[in-house]
Amino acid sequence: MLLVRVRDVSRVFANGVQALGGASLDIGTGEFLSVLGPSGCGKSTLLRLIAGLAEPSAGTIDWPQGRPDIGFVFQEPTLMPWTTTLGNVALPLKLRGQARSEREARAAEALAGVGLQGFEKSYPRELSGGMKMRVSIARALVTAPRLLLMDEPFAALDEITRRKLNTDLLALWERTRFTAVFVTHSVFESVFLSQRIAVMSARPGRVRSELAIPAPYPRTETFGTSAEYAAHCRLASAQLSEAMAA
């Protein structure tokens, strides 16, 4: 079932920079989609348009089943330093007027879901980069959104932490099957994670090609070292080069 239909969307900024030039993309309910593209091609802009944080200059974004709850994960953890982990994760519920005891219970649950039980009372500065990112994911998932938008969430992390978070993110997705849109500039990450990859051209960005990764889940380290994985990476890489050259 179709969740979002993005049609010929453009976005021109006040300073004249055109970030998107007619991007079209269909996103199905429950799928794990990666958006792959070079830096500056308008990936963040596209996510913000889908999230409703900005309006397209041209084109349309339709929600055939109505607009769902949306969770958003930024490239940086974007936590409030003045409150605890629990307070950060409970924020979306607070902004929706949920009572304290209820929202804190749900926030604690979400924290446990990302493997951070016991850190409820910690402040962000006491956590490592990877842990902060987990808090950020827990905050995005605390409202049980049907759509989770992630903007290069692990780009700033080291390789080992990134792998662990990739696996854990997939486990979360398999458990609840929210729709995941994962923006990245890493070919390997996009192939490892997603069922489908949308490859974007350089600015002004649009979706140049799409690529299905039919490998079954759960995807483990074994998948990450398989010949199948390598073949998909080669293909995705070739499509990315093509998109950038165009």
Partner: peptide, 13 residues
């Protein structure tokens, strides 16, 4: 933080 402002907007604050 611009992103935090976006987050507040996303949740209709």
């Amino acid at each position: 933080d611009r992103n935090l402002l976006d987050l507040f907007e996303l949740y209709g604050a």
